[in-house]
Simulated assay, not measured.
Amino acid sequence: MKKYSIDLLLIFSLSLSLLCLLTSCGSARRSEPIMAKSMVKNEEIKKGEIVFMNNCQKCHPGGEAGVGPSLNNLAIPGVTKRFRVRSKAFLFGLGRMPSFKKNEISKEEMDYLIVYMKALRNHDESKN
């Protein structure tokens, strides 16, 4: 029974590691600055840009690779992005990104941030 538990724990750990690896990998692509072409901005995108500039810009300048990996080439759903922003797992050995508490980025601000990140990604794809 003990060997079965160890095997199960090992399989779980490897699966979790593989999942983190697959969602974290991406090219450190650097492109022209986002200001080179204008992005259509509605009110939600403008508010999301403010949240991004206050919390994310330092490590992901313009959504590109900096201290952190590029965000523009991550085709992951908003739920996963929310988890990555809130999760302490990325602070405790699975990555270096700090978690942002609800008092640092509110639910409403998180919604705006996700809208902005989607617009940033779509803007980046339209340049090609």
Rank of each mutant, 00 (worst) to 15 (best):
K37C: 13
S38L: 15
M39A: 06
V40S: 11
K41G: 06
E43T: 14
E43L: 14
E43C: 10
E43M: 14
E44D: 15
E44T: 15
E44G: 08
E44W: 10
K46F: 01
K46H: 05
G48Y: 05
G48R: 01
E49M: 12
E49T: 05
I50F: 07
I50Y: 04
V51M: 09
V51E: 02
F52D: 00
F52V: 06
N55Y: 15
C56E: 08
C56V: 11
K58C: 03
C59T: 08
P61N: 11
G62L: 06
G63I: 00
G63W: 00
G63P: 01
E64A: 07
E64N: 03
A65K: 05
A65T: 06
G66F: 03
G66P: 10
G66T: 05
G66Q: 06
V67G: 11
G68N: 05
P69K: 02
S70V: 08
S70G: 13
L71S: 02
L71G: 06
N72C: 01
N72V: 03
N73D: 13
L74M: 05
L74D: 01
A75C: 01
V79W: 15
V79K: 09
T80D: 06
K81Q: 03
K81M: 12
R84A: 06
R86P: 00
S87M: 07
S87R: 02
S87F: 04
A89D: 01
A89F: 06
L91S: 06
F92Q: 08
F92T: 10
G93D: 02
L94V: 08
G95H: 02
R96C: 09
M97H: 00
M97T: 01
K101Y: 10
N103Y: 13
N103Q: 14
E104A: 11
I105G: 00
S106W: 14
S106F: 15
E108S: 12
E109M: 09
E109C: 10
E109S: 11
